[in-house]
Simulated scan of single mutants.
Amino acid sequence: MRKIFLCIELFLFALTFGCDLPGDVQLTDYRPKNMVEGEIVTLLIEYQDAKNRLDLNRFLACLHEQGRFSFRGTAMVSKGRLRKSLTAFWKTLQSPNRLVLYPLSHEFVTGDYYLSGRLINPRISINGSSADVTVTFASGWWRQKHFISMQRVDDRWMITLLDWEEA
């Protein structure tokens, strides 16, 4: 009986403090099947790092000019609108008043509302010069599917769509 409680406690500890669950694969540990997948994973790591560091220029450099991106869980917006809105949004998330920013309905809480997190367990589907990626965004105990579409533009992959599953 004590062993069962110890296992449950260790599992809860892992979820609470952001440890990975058995079978989770970090982007940095993912083994690409080919060179193209490797390029896509490199972009995903850049996107993840830019978001975690709240580096707007690096974050926007990952996004295609004509893309559509989920913002605050309620709308798909352009890269230009993200450029105008993210700095103030991230500052509010860092402030002591950040809870007033959270939506009343949990359906709209997406990874946008977490200052940092990890992309884990990528599933990549490549079709010529386009790719669709499903990853899990993990921040502490909280996890949510993140859908990312990409397009190859001038020998470089660019993110054309960012969306979240409804919580």
Rank of each mutant, 00 (worst) to 15 (best):
D55C: 09
G111Q: 03
H106F: 07
S116H: 01
R98D: 04
A88P: 01
N121K: 14
V77R: 04
T74R: 15
A61H: 11
E107S: 11
V100I: 08
R123G: 06
N52L: 00
S125C: 02
G67L: 03
D112L: 11
G73E: 07
L115H: 00
V135S: 10
G73K: 09
T92L: 12
V133G: 02
T87E: 04
P103K: 07
V77S: 02
K51Q: 00
L104R: 14
H64T: 06
S95E: 05
R123P: 01
F137E: 02
K51N: 00
I124P: 08
W90N: 07
I126Y: 02
S95A: 10
N57V: 14
R98T: 03
T134E: 06
Q94C: 08
S95Q: 02
R72K: 14
S116A: 02
I120F: 11
T136R: 11
K51H: 00
H64M: 08
K84S: 11
L93P: 05
V133F: 06
Q94E: 12
T134N: 07
R72C: 13
S85V: 02
V100H: 12
N57R: 15
K79V: 03
N52V: 00
N97V: 05
G128H: 10
K79C: 10
S116R: 01
D55T: 09
L54K: 04
Q94L: 10
V77E: 04
M76V: 02
G73A: 11
S105Y: 04
V135D: 03
R123N: 09
L56T: 12
D112I: 07
L54G: 02
L119E: 08
G73N: 09
K51P: 00
F69Y: 15
F108Q: 06
T92S: 09
R118D: 13
Q66A: 15
S78A: 11
F69M: 08
E107P: 02
H64I: 13
R68F: 13
T74W: 07
F108K: 13
L101G: 06
L104W: 10
N121Q: 14
L104K: 14
V133P: 05
R118P: 01
L60T: 12
A50Q: 09
P103D: 09
E65W: 08
A50W: 13
G67S: 04
R83P: 02
L86Y: 05
T87N: 02
P103E: 09
R58S: 15
N52T: 00
Q94H: 06
R123Y: 06
D112M: 06
A75D: 10
M76L: 15
T110V: 06
L104C: 07
F69K: 10
T134S: 04
S105G: 06
T134C: 03
A138E: 08
K91M: 10
